[in-house]
């Protein structure tokens, strides 16, 4: 998930001389025949770069995504909820690791990828730059953010790059509970006291639009979509997925008795789809640039963990070297 919004930022780089027309055509033929590309296979440098960028952004998003939810582990209102949230946040770490691992098969090291995240050079999904200020935010993240993620990730299970597709299969299988637990939290709140209902509505009001932004800019402005589609890295367009998300989510909100924060939202009998209001793309670009409520805190938290952990990682490496020397002696 968490990557589509960011795939228009790549600059055009000079063509790689190894990308001869013959090789490119043969590669495209393999893609068109629905063959999977494996790590050591020849691939165009643009394909490799696009994958590295998309997959590392995806992995970073899983890791940064642990922070807003991790924020509520120690405050979860019941022991059952605490266990579920811990398991879920732990899954996010796991998914980050699966995807970093898959990215490493493209010949980059995780340390370098993480360094790019920590320096602010690499991007991650903007959704995690919004704060979690009430317990209902945890429900809403599960319901909307994971819901949007699943919608994004299911097509990625058929992505042309084997290791990414395989990682996505595992991620999707494991994440199937994430959205359900979120909706369950919302159900409980909406059946609860007036204050709980207010909490739920407040969370929906804050998270609805950012969730829609997760699918990325409109197809009209997303430059790289065409190439990614041809390479079968991306399989469904941003707008198509966004529409699908709105169509399935609106009835779920109605069931909860919550009101969508969109005056223009209306069901179009003719098309069978919901029409919804204009997304505030200015907010999207601002948050992407670093001007969101939590951008600084998120990066500071990861940097601080990394810096404070340096002596630990060094110690483990030093011990391993000592052991190897002892074994050799």
């Amino acid at each position: 998930m968490y990557t589509q919004g960011l795939d228009q930022k790549q600059k055009k780089s000079a063509a790689d001389p190894a990308d001869t027309p013959g090789r490119l055509a043969a590669f495209q033929a393999r893609i068109d025949a629905d063959e999977k590309i494996e790590p050591k296979d020849w691939m165009p440098s643009g394909y490799r770069k696009t994958l590295i960028r998309q997959m590392s952004q995806h992995a970073h998003s899983e890791i940064v995504g642990m922070l807003p939810e991790g924020n509520w582990i120690t405050r979860a209102p019941t022991l059952r909820r605490k266990a579920i949230l811990l398991a879920k946040v732990q899954d996010e770490a796991g998914h980050g690791l699966y995807i970093y691992g898959a990215t490493e098969t493209l010949g980059v090291s995780r340390d370098n990828l993480v360094a790019d995240l920590l320096s602010g050079k690499a991007k991650y999904s903007s959704i995690f730059n919004y704060p979690t200020i009430s317990w209902a935010d945890i429900g809403t993240i599960g319901w909307l953010v994971d819901g949007a993620a699943i919608m994004n990730q299911i097509p990625l299970c058929r992505c042309s790059y084997g290791p990414y597709a395989r990682a996505m299969v595992r991620v999707c299988k494991e994440e199937s509970f994430h959205q359900r637990q979120g909706y369950e939290i919302m159900l409980e709140l909406c059946r609860g006291t007036d204050e709980q209902k207010r909490m739920a509505q407040g969370a929906l009001d804050r998270w609805w639009w950012p969730s829609l932004m997760m699918f990325g800019p409109s197809d009209k402005t997303s430059e790289h979509s065409a190439q990614s589609m041809a390479w079968k890295i991306k399989r469904i367009s941003n707008d198509e997925l966004r529409q699908k998300f709105v169509d399935v989510t609106v009835p779920q909100a109605e069931y909860l008795g919550l009101k969508m924060p969109d005056e223009d939202l209306v069901f179009d009998q003719k098309t069978g789809h919901y029409r919804f209001g204009e997304i505030d793309w200015e907010e999207f670009w601002e948050v992407l640039k670093g001007n969101g409520k939590c951008n600084r805190e998120r990066l500071e938290a990861r940097n601080s963990a990394h810096d404070k952990g340096r002596w630990v990682r060094e110690a483990a490496s030093a011990y391993a070297e000592k052991q190897a020397a002892r074994d050799a002696a």
Binding site: G101, S109, S317
Partner: peptide, 28 residues
């Protein structure tokens, strides 16, 4: 501080062979 990469193989249950699952980093 760069921990080396290890490939992970797991036997899902007895009677099956170990299958490649992915990779992890570790110091030892």
């Amino acid at each position: 501080t760069d921990w080396p990469l290890y490939e992970v193989f797991i036997r899902a249950r007895s009677g099956l062979s170990h299958r490649h699952f992915g990779s992890i980093h570790a110091a030892d």
